[in-house]
């Protein structure tokens, strides 16, 4: 059992299917999705909008219930994993509470999960440091820029002990320069915390820069068309994006996206 659990993937999806029943008829959001995500992986989901990236992430988070197939998270059902607080989830919008300071916002999950007061304070200062927001704990969200707010929301997802971090286009609403900077920081953070990360994006450079594994998806019905293991080293300065290896991976992703498109 112990040997099995160390080798078992964090996320294991087999023939996962999800059909939404809508007023305009059924929407086949996920079809026959098979995927393993191992501990410490940085996995990006890329594809045109409507291909089910968000839906798949929400299935892992047990915010949606698949209509077919099996899905295990940390060896349990997704719902059990959610109740065990197995993951932190970062939404596209920061969604900080305007009536709480940044520190108090980060304490929100800690309060809910019943961490002690002193532990809360310790963790808040740790994660503020981690996302480079030390000194901003006493500020209210409206006093921070969009990028800082999003970093605060990442800190909020890091504050409690979850080995899995799920991020749905967390930098989608930010400009390119801020985005580059945050991507760099995210990689450092991933290296330091050794978390498993699932990351949704529709930017090819972002996906290639960040990931150890890139999952290319295509729509109608939402499915996986390619899974690319990145040959890039774990250590990645920003200018790695100009290397031939990087460009080659990016090319393969683009091909995968195009293939997904051509057959509809």
């Amino acid at each position: 059992m112990t040997t099995e659990s160390t080798t078992q993937p964090v996320i294991k999806a087999r023939q996962l299917d999800l059909t939404f029943q809508t007023n305009d008829g059924p929407v086949h959001a996920l079809k026959d999705v098979n995927l393993d995500i191992n501990k410490g992986d940085f996995v990006s989901f890329i594809g045109p909008s409507g291909c089910g990236k968000t839906t798949f992430l929400r299935c892992i988070a047990a915010l949606e219930t698949p209509t077919g197939g099996t899905l295990s998270v940390n060896g349990m059902s997704a719902d059990e994993a959610r109740r065990n607080r197995a993951y932190g989830y970062v939404f596209q919008a920061a969604g900080l509470y305007p009536w709480r300071t940044i520190s108090k916002n980060i304490k929100l999950p800690l309060e809910i999960m019943g961490y002690s007061k002193s532990d809360q304070d310790k963790r808040v200062s740790e994660v503020l440091e981690l996302v480079d927001l030390a000194g901003f704990g006493g500020k209210y969200p409206w006093q921070l820029s969009g990028g800082m707010q999003q970093r605060a929301s990442i800190a909020r997802a890091l504050a409690f002990d979850a080995d899995l971090l799920l991020m749905d286009e967390p930098f989608g609403a930010l400009d390119e320069i801020v985005r580059d900077h945050l991507n760099e920081q995210l990689l450092q953070l991933w290296a330091r915390t050794n978390k498993t990360i699932g990351f949704v994006t529709h930017s090819i450079p972002e996906a290639v820069y960040l990931s150890t594994k890139i999952v290319v998806m295509s729509p109608r019905p939402g499915r996986i068309t390619d899974v690319i293991e990145s040959p890039l080293p774990k250590e990645r300065p920003l200018d790695i994006r100009d290397t031939p290896e990087f460009i080659e991976v990016a090319h393969r992703v683009r091909e995968g996206l195009r293939a997904g498109h051509s057959d509809d």
């Binding site: 915010l63 993951y87 969604g95």
Partner: peptide, 8 residues
């Protein structure tokens, strides 16, 4: 949804 992810 955020609160649900915390099992609040």
């Amino acid at each position: 949804d955020l609160l649900r992810t915390y099992s609040a």
